[in-house]
């Protein structure tokens, strides 16, 4: 048995960290787009808007019901076959698109559950002071639902950061892609993948810490 090549591992860290902005950038972009899309889907589902509601259900069903990797391949390799303007789609864009659509399907259901979980009296109180439905949703229901949904949404964000590693299958050299290349040239596979695993782990731990702070802040109003 051969000892771990620690010098190689230490030297690899700064090389791989150079790819961190791309990984985090794709995750952040995906999360922002997914939040917007999922809020829209959730509101459509809650208000049972005809036609749109069915469309939202179908969307959620498909993107929850198929693997992310299949969806990424479908967008990157498949769609340009029919939609010629997508021929020039790059791997990064395709990944952000895939992450957005995939995760928004899950997040929409969490947000919907959070909205329907808000006590009916909150809506009635808002109506009683003469708020419109849109005002009630924006100022009373969504802020409270945000607090309920935050732990779940943060979990999806963590999952999304890790899922950016799939971009490497679309030829994007992000954290995972770079590691693969480094490992292939050094033949130190174990060391290389151990380093990248630790990097992902530390990012997620840092995020969990932020999550705790955020939840504490959001719970401020509910302390007795």
């Amino acid at each position: 048995m051969q000892a771990l090549n620690l010098d190689y591992m230490v030297g690899l860290v700064p090389v791989l960290l150079g790819y961190l902005p791309l990984t985090l950038g794709m995750a952040a972009a995906g999360m922002v787009c997914a939040l917007i899309l999922s809020c829209g889907l959730a509101v459509i589902r809650v208000s049972r808007l005809p036609v749109l509601n069915q469309a939202a259900q179908l969307f959620i069903s498909f993107f929850r019901g198929t693997p992310l990797l299949v969806q990424l391949f479908l967008f990157y390799y498949g769609l340009p076959q029919f939609l010629s303007f997508l021929v020039s789609i790059n791997g990064v864009t395709a990944t952000i698109m895939g992450l957005t659509l995939h995760f928004s399907a899950y997040m929409a259901e969490s947000i919907r559950a959070a909205i329907t979980g808000i006590d009916r009296s909150q809506t009635e109180a808002a109506q009683s002071i003469g708020m419109t439905n849109a005002q009630t949703m924006r100022r009373i229901i969504l802020p409270q639902a945000t607090r309920v949904a935050t732990p779940t949404l943060m979990n999806y964000f963590i999952d999304m950061i890790k899922s950016t590693s799939l971009a490497f299958t679309l030829g994007v050299t992000e954290l995972m892609g770079a590691t693969q290349k480094e490992a292939a040239s050094s033949f130190l596979y174990f060391e290389a993948f151990l380093v990248v695993a630790l990097i992902y782990w530390i990012i997620v731990e840092a995020l969990s810490w932020c999550q705790k702070r955020l939840e504490k802040r959001l719970n401020r109003a509910y302390q007795r």
Partner: peptide, 12 residues
Amino acid sequence: AFVFQNYALFAH
């Protein structure tokens, strides 16, 4: 204006 049995203050 309406005053509710269970107050129904905006919790947040």
